[in-house]
Amino acid sequence: MILPAKKYLCLEGNPQDKLYIVKKGLLQAQKREGAKSFIVGEAGPGTLIGEMSLLENLPCKFTYKAVEETELVVVDQQSLKQTLNRFPTWFEPILHFLAQRLRQAETYKSRTDKIRALPSLLFLMCRETEMGGKTTFPIETLIENLRIINGLGYNDTFHLVRALCSLNMAKIIPGEGVHLQVFNPKVVRLLYDTLLARAVDKKRPKTLLSGENQMILSAFVDSAKAKGFNYHDSTGVSSTDLFASYKRLLPGVKFISTSMTALGEEGYLYTYPAYLSSMKTEDIQLFYADIDKVMDILELNRIYPLLDKKLPESF
């Protein structure tokens, strides 16, 4: 087959079931990244194009364009079948086995690359929102910085950003210049610091709360929204109201006042009078806290477990 200069052999993503072997000439491999196309390599004499398309019917990985007139040998399904007919029957399954292993290895690598780029992405989101002071910023800057710091490509970064959006952390705003809107920059910072603390200290960070403590804080937010009052520049709720919310959220589960020790130590929730382990639940008159801080920490504890569960599924 002769492909004239400047003609396309195949287009990225298009179905293909043939293998091409470059005999003479030169092709350029291009990959789409958003609206742009980038040159990612060249295919000269001896290069195979489409081995996975021939064996596994996978679509074209890249777009190939002839730089000069190029001569190619085409191996189609029929030629493959004729060749394999001359071989023992167990030879063909070996080829498919090796092709499947490659597909699995590349899929695993692609997924791992994205998951491992998450810390850098969160770091960059923190930087944009904290230094730039805006919750909405151009996504191009984020992608470019992630490419430089981590090496993740444009398309993979977009997948990763979409996965974060599916966790309800941010939103992609389409338009001429695509923007990313971060819903709560403080939660992004908390998440980044929590992941870093977990990786560095090799133990559960204090920002990750037990189920019991999460429920107490949820009951606080629930009662504060309905009956909260200003208490020394923070939000206060009466113990009666908090216990009522707790009962509604967790029917039949007893409020464990000892949880207040950890919540107070971490600065999330305080009681009046100040909590002592010797105190009984009924001694607590009111609870108070910085409600924004409580809501941020609850949001972190909602998102954190989803990272392991939902994020890999998104890829």
Partner: peptide, 23 residues
């Protein structure tokens, strides 16, 4: 060549999960 290419690409994909993506 198909067999060699597939084996080599598999090896690269496996080895590169442990190294940074940038050069």
């Amino acid at each position: 060549t198909i067999i060699k290419t597939i084996i080599s690409r598999t090896r690269v994909a496996k080895q590169h999960t442990q190294v940074p993506l940038f050069s």
